[in-house]
Amino acid sequence: MTDAEFLLWVRGPAFNIALFIMLAGIVVRFMEILLMGRKTNLAEARGSEMAGGLNTIWRRTLPDADTFRRSGFTIIAGNVFHIGLFVVIFLFVPHILVFERLFGVSWAGLPSNIVDATTVVTIVALLAVLVHRVKDPVLRMLSNFSDYLAWLVTILPLITGWLAFNRVGLSGSTLIGLHILSVELLMVLFPFTKLSHAFTLVLARWYNGAIAGYKGVQS
């Protein structure tokens, strides 16, 4: 396979396969959760499930001051790499073009060199997160193979993307091809690893907030 054929394969059939698995996987995961159902709460409500749920969906993004003090590293590093991923995925013009193909809508991107710098920051944050995971006793105990796998498939597209943008080492086609392939790997594993939190988190936060909201409790 020449690098041109490789690029064509990752842009063509491979992307289709990955997209199919990711989207179908997400839908299946969602339905697995939702179809489990929930009993009607018979206690007299003091507040609103909807208000509590919606509030917690966004409010849980911001930690309270004392939690921030205790888990500062996790929160800062976590936010840095999440915001970094957001910027890199959604604000890099070549990526926006993919979303435009998928959804028919596009939006303004950031200058590529800013995205490039963000990528480096994100990679550094992810490396720091890995070191923390290996060294911290709690994280080490909680971590399993899937955690490291999820980490790997998250950092790979960043690394390959950075290499492709800065055109390091291999031919342009190979670099872009490897980058797209690494994204496809991420897409395929997305619904079946903890990466699925990206969408199930909305449900989790909603349920937490709804349970609290029903009782008129802050969450």
Partner: peptide, 27 residues
């Protein structure tokens, strides 16, 4: 016991360990 909230919770855990710092048995 397992219902939709539990399925959503367990699907979402990223093993970040922040709950440890919130628990007096750990701290």
């Amino acid at each position: 016991q397992i219902d939709a909230p539990i399925a959503a919770f367990l699907s979402s855990c990223v093993h970040c360990g922040m709950c440890a710092e919130a628990c007096l048995f750990f701290t």
